Simulated scan of single mutants.
Amino acid sequence: MDFVDAHCHIISEDLTSYPKAPIGGKQSEWAASRPVTAEGMLARMDETGIGQAVLVQATTNYGYDNSYVLDSSLRHPERFIAVGTVDPLRPDAAANLKAVAGEGGLSGVRLFTSGSTVPTQGEWFIAPETFPFWEQAAELDLPVCLQMRLGAATGQLVELLKRFPGVKVLLDHIGYPDIAASPDRAGADVAELGVHPGLHLKLTHRNLERLQDAGEQAGDFLTPVVEAFGAGRIAWGSNLPAAEQSLPDLRSLAEEVLAGLPEQDRQEIFAGTARRLYPFLGTHGS
């Protein structure tokens, strides 16, 4: 089976060429304690049988400086593409997006609205000042990863998807639905969002661990979500090294939880969706 890791992070040992500049001024714990270089990621991918990966900017280490993911993707174009973090509120956000995207540049961008170092969920991603950014993303057909938590900000997400239906939004970690509290309630809440054709889901260990814990009830979440979105709008990502497990263990976790899905659906989740979202993967991929 073809595997593309749609969400992993790299951090350089060269602090001179790639200085730390974490968003909010605070480096995440994992970035400080278990960083993985581009070369280290390649070694782990080879060990795990993963052909290609999407390098998602380590925002909690580099902020808006996308140099390392870009340089690494240019050094290894047959294995990596780069997704960088940008600021959609800057006055020239649309022009900046156009300048950094495309061949030799970013294959996608990420908005970091919430996370380990940004505990308060930001809702600025639908502020009127961001509209030129979203319009440009739609024009470029450039996927936008959205790191956010469903809940209070879900209304803003829905507003965004309605206002800009041509934008491809990839929801990191599926927006952290509360699977542990109730797999069926969480599944129903996520499935409701499936009516928006531009919305895609990124399935990572943060969801898969909760589904593993749920045991037989995992289907109460997976069944409605896969039915609502289709496997073709769901992509698997390891989240290494933010995830503490090894890459082989993370792949095994995903295979175990998704074992009940048809092979065609699993192939979509493990590679097909990512290849459609990021066409530059196909330039050198299998």
Rank of each mutant, 00 (worst) to 15 (best):
V83P: 05
G285I: 04
F112M: 12
E255C: 10
N66Y: 07
H9Q: 10
P132R: 02
R79E: 07
S246T: 15
D141F: 05
E129M: 08
R44A: 15
A242S: 08
M1F: 08
T117W: 01
L201M: 09
A127S: 13
L171S: 01
L201Y: 03
L277N: 07
R266Q: 15
T16C: 12
H284E: 08
S286K: 13
T120Q: 14
P19Y: 00
H200N: 13
A218I: 06
H7L: 11
L170V: 15
V54E: 00
G282K: 12
P88Q: 01
Q52E: 00
W30D: 15
L160S: 06
Q245D: 15
L89C: 11
P183K: 00
A231T: 05
G104H: 06
S238F: 03
V190T: 10
A99C: 05
S114M: 11
S286E: 10
Q52N: 04
S107Y: 01
D184Q: 12
S286G: 14
R251W: 04
R210E: 15
V100R: 05
V56I: 12
P197L: 01
T60C: 10
E78R: 12
F229E: 00
F3N: 05
G175A: 03
T37L: 09
D46Q: 10
E47W: 02
D87Y: 06
D46P: 05
D71E: 10
K98T: 13
V169H: 10
F221R: 02
K202H: 08
L157N: 03
A231G: 15
V225R: 01
E244A: 15
A180G: 09
